[in-house]
Amino acid sequence: MSIEDEYELLSRLELFESLDAIQLKRLIFVSQRYQIQPGEYLFKQGDTTDNVFGILDGEFSVLLNSPNGEIHIAQHGSGELVGEMAVISGEPRAASVRANCACEVIDFESELFISTVINDPRTAFNMMKLLSARLVKLDKKLEQLSAEQFRN
C-alpha cells in the first residue's frame, strides 16, 4: 500500500470529510505505518502514550480493565480512528486497544494530529461531534448497566 492508497482510505473518514486533500495527504505522509500482529496491543489502558491511529486494515477491540478481566466495549475497523482521546485529554489511555487479526495502522503523532485538526475549525467541530456521540452512547451504556445493577 503506498501513500496514495492510504489517503484514499482515510479520506472517507467522517472526521476528515471537510479537510483539504493536501492537508490529509501531508499528515499521512509524515506519519509512520505499522503492521500489527493478531493479539498485539496498540496501547494499554493507563499507558501515557498519546498518538492517534488510523486503521488501514483489520479490526480492533476496545477493552476496559475490570477485576473480572478485560471487558469488550467497542470494536473498530478499517477506516476508523482509535486513540484520539488521549491526544486531547493528555490523560493516560482510558482503555486498551487490541488487534483481532493481522492489522495495519497509520500512527499519527499527537502534535501533528492536533495541528491538523485544530487548524481547521470544521474538522475540530467534526471531532467534537464524533466524540460527543460516542460519549452519549457510553453514558447510555452506563445508565443501562447501573439500572441492571439496581434491579439485581
Binding site: 466495549i73 485529554s89 490523560e91 482510558a94 485544530i118 467534537m128 466524540l131 457510553l138 448497566l145 447501573s146
Partner: peptide, 28 residues
C-alpha cells in the same frame, strides 16, 4: 472560533474518560 472548540473538546474527552472509569467500576 476554533480556540473555544479545542478548549471544549478537552472537557468532553475528560468526561469521556470519567464515564469509562465509572463503567469499569460498575462492572466490578
Amino acid at each position: 472560533n476554533g480556540e473555544i472548540g479545542y478548549q471544549i473538546l478537552q472537557v468532553v474527552v475528560n468526561r469521556f474518560s470519567e464515564t469509562n472509569r465509572n463503567l469499569a467500576n460498575i462492572t466490578r
